[in-house]
Computed example of a mutant assay.
Amino acid sequence: MPSPKLAPLELTAEERRVLRGWVRRRKTAQVLAIRSRIILACAQGGTVTAVAEELGVSRDMVSKWRRRFLEHRLEGLVDEPRPGRPRTVGDDQVEQVVVKTLESAPPKGDTHWSTRSMAKATGMSQTTVSRIWRAFGLKPHQVETWKLSADPQFIDKVRDIVGLYLDPPERALVLCVDEKSQMQAIDRTAPILPVLPTTPARMSHDYVRHGTTSLFAALELSSGAVIAEHHRRHRHQEFLKFLKTIDKAVPADLDLHLVCDNYATHKTEAVHKWLLRHPRFHLHFTPTSASWLNLVERWFAELTSRKLRRSAHRSVAALEKDVRAWIKEWNADPKPFVWTKTADEILDSLAAYCRRINDSGH
Rank of each mutant, 00 (worst) to 15 (best):
L148F: 12
S130Y: 08
D110H: 14
A7M: 06
S181H: 01
K273C: 09
S149Y: 01
G211T: 09
R17V: 11
T213K: 00
M118V: 13
W292G: 00
L193A: 11
H231V: 06
A105W: 03
D344T: 14
I38S: 01
T88P: 03
L350N: 05
Q126F: 02
S114H: 07
S315W: 08
A312S: 15
P81W: 04
T189A: 05
R25P: 01
G21R: 13
M203V: 08
V51D: 00
E95V: 11
L11A: 13
Q126A: 11
L303E: 02
D167Q: 15
I161F: 12
D60I: 05
G224D: 02
P4V: 12
A218F: 06
V62G: 01
G76D: 01
A264C: 14
H313V: 08
V31Q: 09
D160P: 05
E345K: 03
R298V: 15
P86D: 11
K5H: 12
Q96H: 09
H141W: 05
R16G: 03
P200W: 00
R209S: 10
A105H: 07
R68M: 07
V18N: 04
L6M: 14
S223D: 04
S311Y: 06
V129P: 00
D348I: 11
S104L: 06
V296E: 05
A290Q: 08
R116C: 02
R35Q: 02
V57Q: 01
V338T: 10
A228C: 08
N331R: 09
D187E: 15
V208G: 01
A318Y: 04
S104V: 10
G109I: 06
E14R: 15
R116H: 04
F69P: 05
D92Y: 02
G90C: 00
N294P: 04
S349G: 10
E170H: 12
R277K: 14
A252L: 08
K139N: 14
I38Y: 00
D255Q: 08
K100H: 12
T288R: 11
Y353A: 15
A351P: 05
T49Y: 10
I227L: 09
A43Y: 03
L148R: 11
S311M: 10
L293A: 06
